[in-house]
């Protein structure tokens, strides 16, 4: 149920993002989903990769500061109100969302939303009992 996400610390300077992508690309690591949080001083790049172990090794080799984080991937119908339903399930159990990002699947009529929450196990059971479709990790890596 838990999906591994790789987070990378980036200074705000031109070319850093390109270096990350270049290193991963050269080693054949593919990006499934991506989000970038930026502040005035630094950025945090969050990636779901097809091969997180390899991606991590490649970036460590390049000297980047990286960490792995457990997140939840949820599949929702790609139509108005789809996300609202999921959020109300979490809100009903008072589960705080640290951050989230979404993308639309290529082959199906669904969207995938990645959630990072404080208490991931509680969130998973809340979503399950709320009838929300949670994706298995392997499904996400091979999307």
């Amino acid at each position: 149920m838990k999906v591994k996400q790789l987070s990378i610390f980036l200074e705000n300077q031109s070319g850093r993002l390109a270096e990350v992508m270049g290193s991963l690309g050269k080693e054949g690591v593919n990006i499934r989903a991506l989000s970038l949080a930026d502040t005035s001083g630094f950025g945090i790049l969050r990636l779901i990769l097809n091969d997180i172990q390899k991606g991590r090794a490649v970036l460590k080799e390049q000297g980047f500061t990286v960490s792995e984080t457990d997140v939840i991937a949820v599949e929702i119908p790609d139509k108005p109100g789809g996300l609202a339903n999921v959020l109300s399930v979490l809100a009903g159990k008072s589960i705080n969302i640290e951050y989230m990002y979404a993308f639309v699947e290529k082959s199906q009529e669904n969207a995938v939303v990645i959630f990072r929450v404080e208490d991931i196990d509680n969130a998973i059971s809340a979503l399950q009992s709320g009838g929300v479709q949670i994706l298995e990790a392997e499904q996400v890596y091979s999307l």
């Binding site: 502040t39 001083g41 630094f42 945090i44 969050r46 990286v66 960490s67 984080t69 990072r116």
Partner: peptide, 18 residues
């Protein structure tokens, strides 16, 4: 320098560190 030990992937964590 942000080492792996202090790096959290949440903005608020890093901001509170600094």
């Amino acid at each position: 320098e942000v080492s792996d030990q202090v790096f959290t992937d949440e903005v608020k964590g890093l901001e509170s560190l600094s």
